[in-house]
Nucleic acid binder design. Sequence first.
RNA 1: GCCGCCGUUGCACAGCCCGGUAGUGCAACUGACUGUUAAUCAGUAGGUCAAAGGUUCGAGUCCUUUCGGCGGCGCCA
Length: 427
Amino acid sequence: MALVKISQILDGDCKDQKVTVRGWVYRKREGKSLIFLLIRDSTGVIQSTIKKDSPCWEQAQKITIESSLVLEGTAHEDTRAPGGYEVSAENLEIIGLAENFPISKDKSEEFIRDMRHLWMRSRKMNLVMKVRAETLKAAREYFDKQHYTEVSPPMFISAAVEGGSTLFHLKYFEQDMYLTQSSQLYLEILMFGLDNVYCIAPSFRAEKSRTIRHLTEYWHMEGEWAFGTMDDLIKFEEGLMEYICQIVAARCEKEFKELGANIDKLKAVKAPFPRITYKEAIERLKPKNPALDWGADLGYEDEKVLAEDFGKPFFVYDYPTAIKAFYCKTQKDHPEIALSVDMMVPRIGEISTGGQREDNKDILIQRMKEQGLKPEDYEWYLDLRRYGTVPHVGFGMGLERLLVWMCDLENIIDAIPFPRTTRRFYP
RNA sequence: GCCGCCGUUGCACAGCCCGGUAGUGCAACUGACUGUUAAUCAGUAGGUCAAAGGUUCGAGUCCUUUCGGCGGCGCCA
């Protein structure tokens, strides 16, 4: 009796052999003299048949949906079975007999969110988790191939990275601390020793956003590198995106098929991506949104219109300095324009923001003051400009937003196992 | 923060406009059925209609407030 994974049977590797499978009951259909058990493991779902004269008939009658079991039998081809293969059961051991499982075919979004701990067993969630894992793996592969060093920034931070209003505040023993919104400033520190660095870590935002593309805790893929230019940055980002999409398309074909997600759009992701300036974006949008003037930030509706036009990932760059963070470097002859670039995708809008960082201490202090920040709160950050400052660029990409686009998900909460939103944080 | 929608049995919903004894399907339970594809057929049981207050002879239904959920905008990745 060989212990096998269900996918091995479905792939035809166990034809007419005795097999042992371990898993959970996915469906049960009971007749007078024949019981069908559909058994799932991490690799797939297989049908097993138990006839009335089988020694495990009684166990099969007793077993319930989501019970765990070890089943032994003979695998064979059968066109009547879903997937084309089934196992005639000869022995069935119930490991954990399940109580009446609360999730059935009739379920609402609200209910499966309440039952998140049980819903995480669903095919859909597990397919997405596999795509997520491959996406992370591909991202690391790409950074590594480009000679980036992975680093581990802190989640507890003592001062704001940006404005301050969206920080989660917490008590750290007797003192005030915050949860990080971005690891960028810490990557900038590490860059001085490692040249090119990246991290894949959570970021926390206390924004009371009520949309299908916001989480209060999300995973942020961030990179930062010394001596980099804007052109280096854009090329790196499109290279990363192309690599992730091509690798995931190659490794997750089954998952995309079962999810019903369009894998062709991933295969079509090839560098270079279209690039337009903020000014061009405004001009394109003007006929549809006459109120949009130079200086205004692009709204989600505006981004969506642009994204539908392109139908694939693209960049918008050269934003007005006034709507960007204090650390953004500006154009030499046009200080009103920031060296900043966003990557956008259809349906989601922004999935990444990056740019050149201000490397001049005095300009940085001036920019802080303009935005109402106290330079004394950022002494260590200013030190980086005092001791061997260097031109550098970096970016951050939202992993879950990327997955929403890749997997055609309806809501960002399904791109992460335990979503934290304004209203939900259980379990 | 602003705006909109929703809350009826374990689950999914109807009933609300136009007030008059709480309905259906799934799940559960009992039984039938030789190949099902979240089967089918017959039967049984299951309700503080989110909460509070108000109008009324009478409120699931109308009004007010509160709570919970979902989404749109803004903000952002």
